[in-house]
Write a protein that binds this DNA or RNA. Sequence first.
DNA 1: ATAAAAAATGTAAACGTTTACATTAAAACA
DNA 2: TGTTTTAATGTAAACGTTTACATTTTTTAT
Lengths: 336, 336
Amino acid sequence: MATIKDVAKSAGVSIATVSRVLNGSANVKQATRDAIQRTIQELNYMPNALARGLQKKQSKTIGVLFPDATSYYFAEIIRGINTCIQQAGYRIVVSSAHDAADEANVFLSLWKSQQVSGMIVMMPSTHNATIFNSTQRSIPLILLNTAITDGADITITIDNYQGAKEITKHLIEHGHQAIGFIHGAPNNHDSEERYRGYQDALNEGNLTRSSHLEFHGNFTENSGYRAVISLLNQSEKPTAIFAANDAMAIGAVEAARQLSLQVPQDIAIVGFDDISTARYINPPLTTMNVPVLEIGEMAGNHLIRLLEDNRQVVTREITVPVHLVVRESCGCPKEK
Amino acid sequence: MATIKDVAKSAGVSIATVSRVLNGSANVKQATRDAIQRTIQELNYMPNALARGLQKKQSKTIGVLFPDATSYYFAEIIRGINTCIQQAGYRIVVSSAHDAADEANVFLSLWKSQQVSGMIVMMPSTHNATIFNSTQRSIPLILLNTAITDGADITITIDNYQGAKEITKHLIEHGHQAIGFIHGAPNNHDSEERYRGYQDALNEGNLTRSSHLEFHGNFTENSGYRAVISLLNQSEKPTAIFAANDAMAIGAVEAARQLSLQVPQDIAIVGFDDISTARYINPPLTTMNVPVLEIGEMAGNHLIRLLEDNRQVVTREITVPVHLVVRESCGCPKEK
DNA sequence: ATAAAAAATGTAAACGTTTACATTAAAACA
DNA sequence: TGTTTTAATGTAAACGTTTACATTTTTTAT
């Protein structure tokens, strides 16, 4: 593999000059520049990213850290990040963490080994706030959808609270009085915020909440299924259910069918996320749409700006609005 | 950020000794080793991956290259790869390419800049075979699902041909005589192989094929939709349709409904991939299941072996079997 | 034509590691 | 005890770049 030395020798100049044309320095004669360019082509030379990174102290690589499970958001966010990152000459290294402890490890090792110039971390679990301490961190960090509002340069959070409130209100407008809630995984920030929204919507609608109307799931379809079985197996039955995500809502619909209940006539069910499956199930699921791709793009763009302009790092919190997608599972009439 | 020098000074030894404990060399006194370990902890030291990679000529990073669009396979394959790769101390850098030219660029730049010690490339487009020339390539390469059988160390391909044949035969067994086919994107290897399987199944079933029964889509739901509209708008109508992937099959089902045709009574529709949505649509889609996660794991494992054992690189072609998932869109009765 | 200023190029140190080789310390043997 | 063998540590070069500084070449002004 050709090195800068080979190019220099072959072009009859010093490596410094080659380096200068590589980095677009102004002070090099056009003729020399051309000759070197030609040699580079001939030798098929490409600078060693490791050597360059070592010298310049930056790897042109950004780390993306995900919780293990979340395969739904995953692909789209990566795709969003990649679009902007790639054309700025950066690469993405992805890692996933099994649990909070693992997350800290991966984060630290990525950072301390200087493998990344910046990081985008998605961490909906509410533990672990301290790792991101900005006083000792030297690279820009963007936190996605996390409970932590401090320590990162930018946090991007979807508006779980408003979204949940809105969709719950929608159910209230349908006349429901007993609205159930299926929690997501414990200690999950998204789930907690959605719960807050749900509660406040009930309060503002003067409905009393009751723990009999709640079930603790874990975001999986199966837990949504179990939730409905359990909720409807008691005297105080909900007439509508808001599941903290679509997967659970889908499981809930399944369970309702199993119990020979019509959705939405006998029980209305809504979710959150607007995953691609949501519009295909029967009945099509009313849910809150989360602009996942855009979130990825936003994160990528902001990080690039932080990295390139290395301007004043202003801690900023961005809240991404979500929007209600009315389909049929809430009781609204079919579209066309 | 602490360097090996800081550790050496602080522990009162030379950097060579520190390096030795870092790399687990046998020749270092236990007492010294302990002292150094302690210092490492204290200083929170972690070796600079760039410097190490530069010196060792390997980055402990593996490149994963995807075509831009394929967001379905994407997430699962990454996840599969990541599981094995991560515990072997490697990282994944993902890149996507818009088109074949771009693909070549990304491949070459990743490789030539020594950013990766190995690559996993997914390239279903049939162009571009030459870049992977193994004679001038120095890093292990695994090709996923590609037309190219030469140049890579290992190729992993899903058994499109057999799968397509099997599902087509299934339609034939239902008594269908006029079975339509919806092609995927042009020059796509998966699509072509599935077409081959379809053809051979027809032949073996003594059915004549007809270009009137074929439509050229591009793997999107929308193209499946248009396919059905077009196929059913002619005199020679199919009674069953095999779409080269599930997305198109779903579009096809949609279109059938639009035309007030019952699936499967009026027209049977089957797909390929078994994407998560397949079982939720109405009627649930009969399709071929592709073990995507397993393919990712397989690729990761093989690459690690290639990298670590650096044993004889034997060119191997692995074909991954797929299996028929019978649901209702083919005309089979409901399960339970 | 000559001196001064500006532009182009070269030299060498640095980035943080690993490792071959040289040196010193400890253990084994006589 | 002194010699030889073995184990532990140190020295310094190398990996492929970038860049401050020194040097040479070219241009401009006189």
